[in-house]
Amino acid sequence: MDERAKMSARRVQVYYGTNHALKNVDVDILDKTVTAFIGPSGCGKSTFLRCLNRMNDTVASARVEGLIEMDGRNIYDSRVDPVQLRAKVGMVFQKPNPFPKSIYDNVAYGPKIHGLTRNKAELDEVVESSLRKAALWNEVKDRLAAPGTGLSGGQQQRLCIARAVATSPEVLLMDEPCSALDPIATAQVEELIDELRSQFSVVIVTHSMQQAARVSQRTAFFHLGSLVEYGETGTIFTAPNDPRTESYITGRIG
């Protein structure tokens, strides 16, 4: 096990009913690092991502086996409250999903339910700093009371990132966060990911190889439910060990 590992997964299996969706996955997520999961659709990368904050618990037919540890503690232990785990392992989804509330309340949602602030002034501060971290503050500071659903797609996604950042997570999971965004918004989000790396580890699932190469330090390639290769992003993209990885990166399978 890597010394710098924030989270580590060993022999993880996931079943959806009788469908064996994820087979024997071993991955170490390093602290203050961006890790990219790549692979063709249906390869299990999103499934694995959702294991890391136990979001699969909300799917009735899903069953997870194997060991996933965070800071050396098994997150699937019966003593672990998935709700508290998810406060520490934040998540941003593929499609922007702001709540039908004001921009302010969207960001304040996490801090409020977890009691992270003592008074309104502190909450204001958290909201502002989160929006700043998500590079959205300047665009929305004059209309914090406006509904979050009224923002553009890129702004909505950054709002969702601000919302996740506001609970001060230790790991941030991003499930294809840019797939619904235009190139400009994508560039903004990528820049943001790079900044967030200084505070916590980021795991990003992406279909864009360029994006994985641009933002990540480590890359894992999934294929047909198995982890094919995992290592330094540079190595994966320039000198992959596995022929399947090379085929995917060069566009021969997908």
Partner: peptide
């Protein structure tokens, strides 16, 4: 109500009742 909204809330560590 779209499932995405519920996922968003669960993803922030909210309980079901919250």
């Amino acid at each position: 109500v779209p499932r995405a909204l519920r996922d968003g809330s669960y993803g922030l560590g909210a309980t079901q009742s919250e």
